[in-house]
Simulated scan of single mutants.
Amino acid sequence: MIRTVVPAEAEAIVALHARARATYYPDGVPRDGTDWLANWRTAIERPDGQVLCGVEEGRIVGLASFRTPEGAGPDTVKLFQFHVDPDHWRAGVGTALHTACVEQWRADGRRTAVLDVHVDNRRAQGFYARQGWFPDPENPPAEGDHHLFLRYTVHPGE
């Protein structure tokens, strides 16, 4: 089941986020002082964004956070976070969550979605390519940057 996250679930979201991120940092998740609990609470409560989750047997196993990025027009949305619990990879959770995102973007009148993905996260890059994401021609990677920038075209009425 895909649904909107509620504020009381912020700690579960942080734990899932940490488990998923740990899989693509070869030296472990950087400890940069980020207060992920505060960040996720803000994302969950933002009136201009949405956090969706995939739930199986009462447990959150996937999450997606998106909103209009700073400086973008109303037809663009940014997928800021997209994670599936590693124990649920290749079980359809990510595809169902992505489909729900696209349906919401379409309902909101979005025409373009953007995201950035860590260069070491080859698994995610493959997933996004299978979903129809492609390198963002307006945002090529800068030398030394550890992110790739991708774009998705939201087609009306699919």
Rank of each mutant, 00 (worst) to 15 (best):
D27R: 15
G28N: 02
G28T: 07
V29I: 10
P30T: 04
P30Y: 04
R31F: 11
D32P: 05
D32L: 15
D32A: 09
G33K: 10
G33W: 08
G33F: 12
G33V: 07
D35W: 12
D35L: 10
W36I: 12
A38L: 14
N39K: 15
W40M: 03
W40S: 03
R41N: 07
T42S: 11
T42C: 09
T42K: 15
R46K: 13
R46Q: 10
P47Q: 09
G49I: 09
L52C: 02
L52H: 00
C53V: 15
C53H: 05
G54N: 00
G54S: 13
G54Y: 04
V55D: 02
V55W: 10
V55P: 07
E56F: 05
E57F: 12
G58P: 13
G58T: 09
R59G: 03
R59I: 02
R59D: 00
I60W: 06
I60C: 08
I60K: 09
V61L: 09
G62I: 12
L63M: 15
L63V: 03
L63W: 01
A64H: 03
F66W: 02
R67Q: 08
T68G: 07
P69D: 05
P69C: 06
P69V: 10
G71N: 02
A72L: 02
A72H: 07
G73H: 07
P74G: 08
K78E: 13
F80L: 01
F80V: 07
F80R: 05
F82H: 06
H83K: 06
V84L: 06
D85K: 07
D85L: 06
D85M: 05
P86V: 08
P86E: 06
D87N: 13
H88G: 01
R90F: 13
R90N: 14
R90Y: 11
A91W: 05
A91R: 15
G92V: 12
V93Y: 11
V93I: 14
G94E: 02
A96W: 09
L97D: 01
H98F: 13
H98A: 04
H98L: 01
C101I: 06
C101S: 04
E103N: 09
Q104W: 14
W105V: 07
A107W: 01
A107C: 00
D108W: 15
R110H: 09
R110L: 05
R110T: 03
R110I: 05
R111C: 11
T112H: 13
A113S: 10
A113Q: 05
V114Y: 04
L115H: 10
L115Q: 02
D116L: 12
D116Y: 13
V117N: 11
V117L: 12
V117Q: 11
H118F: 14
V119Y: 09
V119M: 08
D120H: 15
A124Q: 02
Q125V: 08
G126E: 13
G126K: 14
F127Q: 01
F127C: 03
F127H: 00
F127N: 00
F127L: 02
Y128E: 03
R130M: 07
R130W: 04
Q131L: 12
Q131F: 05
G132I: 01
F134Y: 15
F134K: 10
P135H: 06
P135S: 04
D136R: 14
D136Y: 13
P137L: 10
P137A: 10
E138L: 14
N139K: 15
N139A: 14
N139Y: 12
P141S: 03
E143N: 02
D145L: 09
D145Q: 10
H146T: 13
H146N: 13
H146M: 04
L148I: 04
L148R: 06
